[in-house]
């Protein structure tokens, strides 16, 4: 890595990278506030809607993109937020690292599943498991 001093007066120096996750979390939160308002209006529109109405909603590209964006930004935000929670309460290094690894895997899988489902719904693909062995 760099040859910048890691310690200064026996105190760890982290000003060059330590704020990265903190800043990312804020940017994600800033994006999630308008997306959350849009999600509330969407929930209002689609509450109790029929299958056809929901599919027609997904056929609108803007809706599909915004919902995909909401899911990806939220799961990215959640991975950082839950990491802080884990770091606050779990102090055994091995357990902490394992939990954070599981957390990141779960967030990644959920984000990928969202994109997969949204893409299929937006393209009007045949219901699953069409084309997946059934």
């Amino acid at each position: 890595m760099s040859d910048a001093a890691k310690f200064k007066n026996n105190v760890k120096v982290s000003e060059r990278h330590g704020a990265g996750e903190w800043a990312t979390e804020r940017v994600a939160l800033l994006a999630l506030i308008p997306l959350g308002l849009w999600l509330a209006s969407t929930a209002f529109t689609l509450a109790g809607a029929s299958y056809e109405v929901v599919l027609a909603w997904f056929a609108n590209g803007l809706n599909a993109v915004l919902l995909g964006l909401t899911a990806v930004v939220f799961f990215g935000f959640a991975s950082l937020a839950w990491k802080v929670i884990i770091e606050d309460y779990i102090h055994k290094p091995g357990t902490k690292a394992a939990l954070i690894a599981v957390l990141n895997l779960v967030c990644l899988v959920l984000a990928a599943a969202s994109i997969f489902f949204i893409t299929r719904l937006a393209l009007g693909s045949a219901p699953l498991p069409a084309g997946f062995g059934a």
């Binding site: 299958y51 929901v54 599919l55 997904f58 899911a71 939220f74 799961f75 959640a78 937020a81 839950w82 929670i85 959920l110 599943a113 969202s114 997969f116 489902f117 949204i118 299929r120 719904l121 693909s125 219901p127 699953l128 498991p129």
Partner: peptide
């Protein structure tokens, strides 16, 4: 944030049932 994570998991479930058909 913890409750919202549960909510988003339910949202993914909603997407899943839609993708699996009427």
């Amino acid at each position: 944030i913890i409750a919202a994570s549960v909510g988003l998991v339910i949202l993914v479930g909603w997407l899943g049932v839609l993708a699996f058909g009427p």
